[in-house]
């Protein structure tokens, strides 16, 4: 018997659970950075200029592929905090269909309190990353 594929909402709720014990901003940063530490570094050949996302303070490379009708995000950054954001996106997006991702609400950053951690410029960087993923998913 195979497990039922998790929905886009369920994936986000699983990430939210990781922040359940974070009581203040520093706790939330600690979780975010820890998640960043868990993002595997792709081969150096992945870090090409055409995969760089414009509008981010730190360097971000990303690529969105499709496998069996679902999305597969590969992404990396030179900073741990941004890697944490990318880890969250990967956990939520990988396995979702393009339609599910494009029509669904991406609420995880808001509800985890991660959006509040980010300054306006850094929030704008996160928006650039999400916009780029949406563009590639379309």
């Amino acid at each position: 018997m195979t497990d039922k594929p998790r929905s886009f909402i369920e994936r986000q709720n699983e990430v939210l659970a990781l922040f359940a014990d974070a009581y203040d901003d520093l706790d939330r940063y600690t979780v975010l950075i820890a998640l960043g530490g868990m993002l595997e570094q792709p081969d150096v050949s992945f870090m090409t200029d055409d995969r760089l996302v414009k509008g981010c303070q730190s360097q971000v490379w990303l690529d969105l592929a499709r496998s069996d009708g679902t999305l597969e995000l590969t992404a990396y950054s030179d900073t741990l905090i941004v890697r944490g954001l990318l880890y969250i996106l990967r956990e939520c997006i990988n396995g979702a269909t393009a339609g599910e991702f494009l029509s669904g609400e991406l609420f995880v950053f808001e509800r985890a309190g991660v959006s509040d951690l980010l300054s306006p410029t850094r929030r704008s960087g996160l928006s650039s990353i999400i916009s780029e993923i949406r563009r590639q998913a379309e």
Partner: peptide
Amino acid sequence: SILDRAAGGKP
């Protein structure tokens, strides 16, 4: 310390 723990892949 926070960064060290993360770099070690520990949540």
